[in-house]
Measured scan of single mutants.
Amino acid sequence: LKLEELTVSELRQQLRLRGLPVSGTKSMLLERMRG
């Protein structure tokens, strides 16, 4: 599964599971997911 294919709400869910901030735009969330 490519990160880009996730919805913003799915990205936020994944970030929350990792204890990361869930604020910002989709591109910011993607950068955060990539670490």
Results as ranks from 00 to 15, higher is better:
residue 6 L to W: 11
residue 28 M to D: 11
residue 29 L to G: 04
residue 10 E to A: 05
residue 21 P to S: 11
residue 21 P to H: 01
residue 22 V to I: 09
residue 7 T to R: 03
residue 29 L to W: 03
residue 29 L to C: 05
residue 7 T to C: 03
residue 14 Q to R: 11
residue 28 M to I: 14
residue 33 M to Q: 14
residue 4 E to N: 13
residue 17 L to D: 14
residue 18 R to A: 14
residue 8 V to L: 12
residue 22 V to P: 01
residue 16 R to Y: 02
residue 29 L to R: 02
residue 30 L to S: 02
residue 17 L to S: 09
residue 21 P to A: 11
residue 18 R to P: 07
residue 29 L to E: 10
residue 7 T to E: 07
residue 3 L to S: 10
residue 21 P to F: 00
residue 35 G to F: 08
residue 25 T to R: 04
residue 11 L to A: 02
residue 13 Q to G: 09
residue 34 R to F: 04
residue 11 L to G: 02
residue 13 Q to A: 08
residue 4 E to P: 06
residue 2 K to A: 13
residue 2 K to D: 04
residue 18 R to V: 11
residue 24 G to E: 07
residue 8 V to H: 04
residue 6 L to S: 08
residue 6 L to V: 06
residue 30 L to R: 08
residue 16 R to K: 15
residue 5 E to W: 01
residue 20 L to C: 11
residue 34 R to S: 13
residue 9 S to R: 12
residue 8 V to G: 05
residue 18 R to L: 15
residue 27 S to Y: 01
residue 29 L to I: 01
residue 4 E to I: 04
residue 24 G to S: 01
residue 11 L to F: 00
residue 34 R to Y: 07
residue 6 L to T: 02
residue 27 S to L: 08
residue 28 M to A: 14
residue 3 L to T: 12
residue 25 T to G: 09
residue 28 M to Y: 04
residue 16 R to V: 10
residue 30 L to I: 15
residue 4 E to V: 00
residue 35 G to N: 11
residue 5 E to P: 07
residue 18 R to C: 10
residue 30 L to V: 12
residue 7 T to W: 04
residue 15 L to H: 15
residue 34 R to W: 03
residue 18 R to T: 09
residue 11 L to M: 07
residue 35 G to A: 12
residue 13 Q to S: 10
residue 7 T to Q: 07
residue 34 R to I: 07
residue 11 L to R: 03
residue 17 L to A: 14
residue 29 L to M: 07
residue 3 L to E: 09
residue 30 L to Q: 14
residue 23 S to Y: 12
residue 13 Q to E: 12
residue 30 L to G: 04
residue 21 P to N: 08
residue 26 K to G: 01
residue 6 L to M: 15
residue 12 R to A: 06
residue 6 L to I: 09
residue 13 Q to D: 13
residue 27 S to V: 06
residue 31 E to S: 08
residue 34 R to V: 09
residue 23 S to G: 14
residue 7 T to G: 10
residue 1 L to S: 12
residue 26 K to E: 06
residue 3 L to W: 05
residue 1 L to N: 15
residue 14 Q to A: 15
residue 27 S to T: 12
residue 20 L to T: 00
residue 26 K to W: 06
residue 14 Q to H: 10
residue 29 L to T: 08
residue 12 R to G: 03
residue 11 L to V: 03
residue 30 L to D: 06
residue 1 L to M: 13
residue 24 G to L: 00
